[in-house]
Write a protein that binds this DNA or RNA. Structure first.
Lengths: 111, 111
DNA sequence: GAGATATTACGACGTCCGTCGAACGATCCG
DNA sequence: CGGATCGTTCGACGGACGTCGTAATATCTC
């Protein structure tokens, strides 16, 4: 599991990653945390939101950490806009690589 | 493992688990390991196999550990038959709780 | 430039996870 | 019974993970 992060942001050095750097184990691992699941749920409608607009009950730095995990797994994109980072779900890339996965996860999360 | 086992084998004490004890985060966490993904893949056809019939390149005890994780997440059942434990995928329960998830995961794993 | 705002980076700390070897328990077979 | 087979349990170890507070960076505003 352990992988030293040496690569450039969105590109992962994962053994079984596809052409676009998406690895199933990495994606599932990123989604296996309730907080990150909540983040993804809130972005499910395709909206683009700033990091600070998420009201999870955790410290700023912890939030940032979870965003990092999601971006590095290829689940989210982060776009800089002034002093704000806009986060967005990579629904198309995810759907292309793992058809049906995102919908299944999102469907199962709001029960 | 972490939790003290006070419940009856298949019942987990997970905060956001459904009636049948299946929790999305727990299931995704269990599937986020390449070895466990391989185990589930091999059971995808609904067959019932003994623990020893899996040729993963790891120690017996490690194998046993991974089977435990999968059973405790509600993904597999373990049935004792003589000195052999037969493992089987809980496809129906999984499908009922997280429709489409298993197929999406299995589809994405054999690329 | 000074100050405020948004977010990341850096250590640090405790816990959980994957791995192993060795020991144990249960079962089958001679 | 004695040995072989199948699998689990136990204790240990190193590394990864989630969490935090604080410091740093970048941007906007005055």
């Amino acid at each position: 599991m352990g992988a030293l992060q040496v690569l450039s942001a969105e590109q992962e050095a994962d053994p079984d990653a596809g052409p676009d750097g998406l690895s199933l184990a990495l994606v599932l691992g990123a989604l296996s945390d309730p907080i990150r699941l909540a983040i993804v749920s809130e972005l499910a409608d395709g909206s683009e939101r700033s990091c600070g607009s998420f009201d999870l009950g955790i410290a700023k730095s912890t939030r940032s950490h979870h965003f990092n995990v999601l971006v590095e797994a290829g689940i989210l994109t982060r776009r800089v806009e002034g002093r704000i980072r806009k986060l967005k779900l990579r629904r198309d890339a995810l759907e292309a690589r793992f058809p049906g996965l995102l919908d299944a996860v999102l469907g199962g999360s709001r029960r």
